[in-house]
């Protein structure tokens, strides 16, 4: 904060004439226009990148549906209702991604079932219970979790978690839905914790104090007042965590086993599944360009893109709600 003395000094130093000449006027207008358009171009670049990705994916996915050999409707029906994915078969290729979509849901939902309660409890602890010192130590440590490259998680999943699951729980295969979900939940947790913690902290101190003043205990205040007040921010945290889990590729490719099946019975997480991201990452590398298989991978990409796009809109919605003043 400036003192009164320095303010008067500043007034003395203020020497710019109040009436501008035409030249001054023109140059400052030009400068402001230049800076504005430069900033616009910079902003537009990132927007354009997003749009171009959309265009590119649609462009590459279109031939898959518009191929002359089968009608688009048949293609679509097979695509979304068949569980059989044999894109490389020479005589009778099949392009059904039902099992693959199901696989994505399996690992995403299971990882959320693990990560959301854990993350939420951690957020509550950090925002309301932990001392200032503990919080200062814990928050950066949690953020380090987000900085570990996913390949490192993948190696951990294959080399440590998979043999452990086989040896100690007796699963026939260690690379399965549970393994991928466990690792994904660890990866989604930093997002969930930090966003949920922000939401809980955003609930004003006066609301908590009002609750205490009415005789509520700490637990009652947390469960009945603070969490309900922060619900939109918490939902945004869950959705952001979900997006992390849906979009993660390397870990699921390495940890999920990539068997194209819907587990039966449905709750059996010890069976291996295949996700949309893993299918794209695993097969795009060596597939001949321009084949139906190539375009079918982009069709999967389109499904994934639409899905994450919707999730993103939803989370934007909740974040907007969080920012509105609470009355």
């Amino acid at each position: 904060m400036t003192t009164a003395g320095s303010q008067s000094d500043a007034a003395v130093q203020f020497t710019r004439p109040l009436r501008l000449t035409f030249r001054d006027d023109l140059s400052s207008t030009l400068l402001s226009w230049l800076v504005k358009s430069f900033l616009f171009v910079v902003t537009f670049c990132s927007v354009a990148a997003v749009l171009l990705i959309f265009v590119f994916v649609i462009r590459q996915a279109a031939p898959f549906f518009a191929e002359s050999r089968v009608s688009p409707l048949e293609r679509l029906t097979e695509f979304f209702t068949s569980r059989r994915w044999f894109p490389e078969h020479q005589a009778h290729p099949e392009y059904g991604i039902l099992a693959i979509i199901a696989g994505s849901f399996y690992v995403t939902i299971t990882s959320l079932l693990i990560a959301v309660p854990t993350g939420l409890l951690a957020a509550v602890f950090l925002s309301d219970i932990a001392s200032f010192r503990t919080r200062q130590i814990c928050k950066p440590l949690i953020e380090i979790l987000a900085a570990i490259p996913s390949v490192a998680y993948g190696v951990f999943a294959v080399m440590v978690v998979a043999p452990w699951l086989q040896k100690n729980i007796g699963f026939p295969t260690g690379t399965n839905a549970l393994n991928a979900s466990l690792i994904l939940s660890v990866m989604a947790m930093p997002t969930i914790i930090s966003v949920a913690e922000d939401a809980l902290s955003a609930v004003g101190r006066e609301i908590r104090e009002a609750s205490y003043a009415l005789g509520a205990t700490r637990a009652e205040t947390m469960l009945r007042i603070v969490i309900p007040a922060a619900h939109s921010g918490i939902l945004a945290a869950v959705i952001l965590g979900m997006m992390r889990a849906v979009g993660e590729t390397m870990v699921v490719w390495m940890a999920s086993g990539n068997a194209t099946q819907i587990p039966s019975p449905w709750w059996d997480l010890s069976q291996s599944v295949r996700t949309m991201t893993a299918t794209i990452a695993g097969e795009l590398g060596e597939v001949p360009q321009g084949t139906t298989h190539f375009h079918s991978l982009f069709a999967i990409g389109l499904v994934l893109l639409i899905f994450t796009f919707c999730l993103n809109l939803l989370s934007e919605h909740f974040i907007m709600q969080m920012k509105k003043p609470k009355r």
Partner: peptide
């Protein structure tokens, strides 16, 4: 449908090595 897929020879080797 229950066949698992890996995308390299070393990975296939690692899976067989660690799975009885």
């Amino acid at each position: 449908a229950n066949v698992e897929y890996v995308n390299s020879n070393p990975q296939a080797h690692a899976r067989v090595r660690s799975t009885p």
